[in-house]
Amino acid sequence: MATVDSTVRAEAPVRGRGADTSAGLGPYRLGLRRLRRNKAALAFGALFLLIVVLCLCAPLYAEHVAHTSPNANHVTETVVVGGVRKDVVSPTGQPIGPTWQGRFLLGADQNGRDIAVRLLYGGRNSLEVGFLATLLTMVLATIVGIVAGYTRGFVDGVLARVLDLIWAFPVVLLGIALGTALALGGISIGPLHLEGNSLLVPAFIIGIVYIPYVAKPIRGQVLGLREQEFVDAARVGGAGPLRIMLSEILPNVASTIIVFVPLMIANAILLEAALSYLGAGVQPPNPSWGTMISDGIRLIPSAMHLTFVPGLMLVLAVLGINVFGDGVRDALDPRAKVRLEEHAEEASR
């Protein structure tokens, strides 16, 4: 499991009355200019974007090319490949491999379901969970981090302990525990009820378990910011705590939040895959890259495509968003890279 690089947390450019705007450019415009120069980050960002677009096109592919749906079984059907009629699933349960044609382009799984179709729909589900979980994490972590850091005292003490409590559990174990418990009965929060097989359940779980990983760095940054002169000036000017947090503090932690977003998406996608692999994430028969890998494990020696194809997609998607995320971090906070290199040199000595 990838971990979040917490070194980005305290060095983001300070905006507002104390902001550093070198060369007459704002920090974000400056960051964008740096990002444009980072070709590797852009290339991997484009790769991730391509995967997202492909996955969004899943219904079109399923209907017009593969002529099936992601959960449709074709166990006893046949398909003509190179003029030869072949079983989609053999009498001994061996699924057909890639046909390199419209139907079963990347082969079939044990239930005779089209791997290519499930790959795209699975990508939609994995990405949907990843994005929703990241959104939940970022919103809640930002609120908790800013409130805890700005108010300090009792509120900070309570929130910090809650974060410590969540942090104390290994992410995957906590995810499995929550996923297994919630898969059966779903979640009820007030009038809102999520069925156990809803995609929102794994999104909710992943969103919750990652809150401390974002909230703690933000809190640390806010603890420093609240002592800055521009915050004192706002307070003297009559601004209340809520206004100060929204108009003075939040803009100054925005770059940290932005840097975290791609990293959290990558982590959320990986955790979703891990949970789904273990049966605690996306619920069958709905596909996700994790469930597809899990389904194919028992046939690895004879039908490697069942695990290889979703595994490759997972690697490419996470690699793409991670390298792009590194590029964003370097663009918004170039000193983070220098610090990392210094740490590496010290470690090697």
């Binding site: 079984n73 166990v75 006893t76 699933v89 053999s90 009498p91 001994t92 349960g93 044990q110 239930n111 005779g112």
Partner: peptide, 12 residues
């Protein structure tokens, strides 16, 4: 129910 499909799912 396609019982032949079930047989294939059970790897025979």
């Amino acid at each position: 129910i396609d019982r032949e499909a079930m047989v294939r799912l059970a790897s025979g």
